[in-house]
């Protein structure tokens, strides 16, 4: 199993932390991982992208150029997302912000209203965790079984109170895919 994922959005949406949490969880599940970020110099609002690979085997190039799955969190990122997608790839759209239709007919598209789901749970900033749950459910690449331990090492102690909300977001993302 090798799952190459391309994640794209704007700075502040948690693209980088989604990618890091994804590979951290994969490493805890015994997989080989690479995470390569690409982001603008701006603190908020610039481009944010991540090439993320999890695999049973040694990983060759860390750069994702033919993605099995593509996560698009903002309208601006749809074009690059479609460019990077391999034939018949999975395209996960944050439907609250990506209103436009996609171009490629071969892609398997799942629309998740990440922002609405996150806001309903309690904080817009966990929209990325909703999407990560959706990604796990739609690809089957990760079980995310060790998520709590991963989030405990990822966040500083002062933020550990937010972990239940993050786990709820991941569950809601999974549920949204099951219903889609």
């Amino acid at each position: 199993m090798t799952e190459k994922t391309f994640m794209a959005g704007f700075g502040g949406q948690g693209i980088i932390s989604m990618g890091q949490t994804w590979v951290y969880a994969a490493m805890k599940e015994g997989l080989e991982v690479t995470f390569f970020p690409f982001y603008g110099a701006e603190k908020r609002g610039g481009i944010a992208r991540a090439s993320v690979i999890v695999s049973n085997d040694e990983i060759a190039s860390p750069l994702v150029t033919q993605a099995h799955s593509v996560v698009v969190m903002s309208a601006d990122s749809l074009v690059i997302g479609e460019e990077v997608a391999a034939p018949d790839a999975l395209l996960l759209l944050n439907s609250d912000l990506v209103k436009a239709g996609h171009e490629r007919a071969d892609l398997r598209v799942i629309r998740i209203p990440c922002n609405s789901i996150a806001t309903k749970i309690g904080d817009l900033r966990i929209a990325n965790m909703v999407m990560m749950g959706a990604l796990a459910e739609a690809t089957g690449a990760l079980e995310l079984a060790h998520l709590e331990a991963v989030l405990k090492s990822y966040f500083p102690k002062s933020k550990h109170g937010l972990i239940p909300m993050n786990i709820a977001a991941v569950e809601a993302g999974r549920e949204a895919v099951r219903k889609a």
Binding site: E32, V33, F36, P62, L63
Partner: peptide, 9 residues
């Protein structure tokens, strides 16, 4: 920059 910036186990 690729090797410096990327994360792996």
């Amino acid at each position: 920059g690729l090797i410096g910036q990327m994360m792996e186990g």
